[in-house]
Amino acid sequence: MAMTETSNHNEINKTDHVTSIWWIVAAPAVWAVHFLASYLTAAIFCAKFADSDGSAGEVQLAVMAYTVVAIVIIAGVGWSGRRRHRDGHDRSPHDGATTADLRRMIGLSTFLLSLLSAVATVFTALVFYFVETCH
């Protein structure tokens, strides 16, 4: 019975680690998708649908919508990371060879990368906010 519990516990931890590692790249991936979607939308709109004056108001609206969605997702990922990071009472650096430290370290990485991704996403959106035309 004891062996079964240990085995289950290890299995749960292993799955948790794999899941956690993917959390690290989640926010940068959202930024990358936001970046690609924004520029692809602008390229296709300007090539196919723009007026003679080159106004790109529709693109601005689309990018603002993408931005809201991206920021909400990044905020969720960041909040999740911060929660993992603050789980327990240990203080950083989380460099012990323990499951708890690994979990906290990944949580901190997720949180910091979420902040960076949020700034990068806003920077991408600012370009479309200021540049109003396809010219």
Binding site: V119, V122, F123, L126, V127, Y129, F130, V131, E132, T133, H135
Partner: peptide
């Protein structure tokens, strides 16, 4: 640094529409 760079980015981007206007 983030605040300063954001301000500089906004300042630079605000110049573009007039420079690009035919």
């Amino acid at each position: 640094p983030t605040l300063v760079l954001t301000s500089l980015l906004c300042y630079a981007l605000a110049m573009l529409p007039e420079l690009h206007r035919p």
